[in-house]
């Protein structure tokens, strides 16, 4: 049987969970979380890279076989994101970059316009760009035209655990954007992640729901099962919902001589 791989930005991944790293009580938990989730990609804020402090530098806790995707957390516009991305490339030796441009410190909503601008600059420089975005089709098309490898729409404002609030907009992105859709932010429960995968999202990114759980390792496992279940269901083809029971065909049965 052919492997069901997520292909984006030069990555060919068996795992469809991306893990965020910003909220753990202890970096030493990271290897266990990655293992429990079966994740192959972890995002790390460049602002937290700390090469002067090897004991606490988050990069030193990430297993060798896991891809580091630096993010531009803290950038308020395209120019800042571009500078942070270039620092990330030199420091982490990767051309993967998750663009986060946030100019609203209450809800931390991404700025799609600045994000598309940063996509264009960084993609031209050879970065594999994964933009965090508000679920908006026009913005997704701009990012695709700018050379993005995927789009990462939010399900709900970051850190809220409110689940798939932007479901219909994400469905439209899956149908129309022409890029892998990786849902980022707001996923609070494994069932939310499962729902994303059932819809046809290529992957989900989880941070708060795992890191703030009383048992992060167990929660990571729960997400792994949920994502797998959702993906399998999507691959198998999910039956349509119906408002009424359909035991027979009262209107067209006569065509078969019923």
């Amino acid at each position: 049987m052919e492997k069901d791989l997520l292909t984006a930005g030069g990555l060919n991944l068996e795992s469809r969970i991306f893990i965020g790293s910003g909220k753990f009580p202890d970096n030493s938990l990271i290897p266990e979380i990655i293992k429990a989730a079966g994740a192959q990609v972890i995002t790390v804020a460049v602002r937290r890279f700390d090469f002067d402090n090897p004991k606490e530098n988050i990069l030193n806790f990430i297993p060798q076989n896991v891809k580091i995707m630096p993010n531009t957390s803290g950038a308020r516009n395209a120019a800042e994101a571009v500078k942070i991305a270039r620092i990330a490339k030199a420091a982490a030796q990767t051309d993967l970059i998750k663009i986060e441009i946030i100019n609203d410190n209450k809800y931390l909503l991404p700025d799609n316009y600045e994000t598309a601008k940063a996509c264009e600059i960084l993609a031209k420089e050879g970065f594999k760009v994964f933009p965090y975005m508000n679920a908006d089709l026009y913005a997704a098309r701009d990012m695709k035209n700018a050379g993005a490898a995927a789009v990462m729409p939010l399900a709900a404002p970051i850190g809220t655990n409110k689940g798939l609030q932007t479901k219909e907009m994400i469905r439209i992105l899956i149908e129309e954007a022409g890029l892998p859709v990786i849902v980022d932010a707001g996923i609070g429960r494994p069932s939310d992640a499962c729902a994303c995968m059932e819809m046809g999202c290529e992957a989900v990114m989880i941070n708060t729901a795992i890191s703030t759980s009383a048992d992060p390792v167990l929660m990571a496992k729960a997400f792994a099962f949920a994502v797998k279940a959702g993906r399998n269901a999507y691959a198998a083809g999910i039956g349509e919902k119906s408002e009424t029971a359909r035991a027979s065909s009262p209107l067209t049965g006569f065509l078969n001589g019923d």
């Binding site: 009580p25 460049v46 602002r47 937290r48 700390d50 402090n53 606490e56 803290g74 942070i84 620092i87």
Partner: peptide, 9 residues
Amino acid sequence: YQPIMKDWL
């Protein structure tokens, strides 16, 4: 909790 020494660049 985790002490953070560096959170900007």
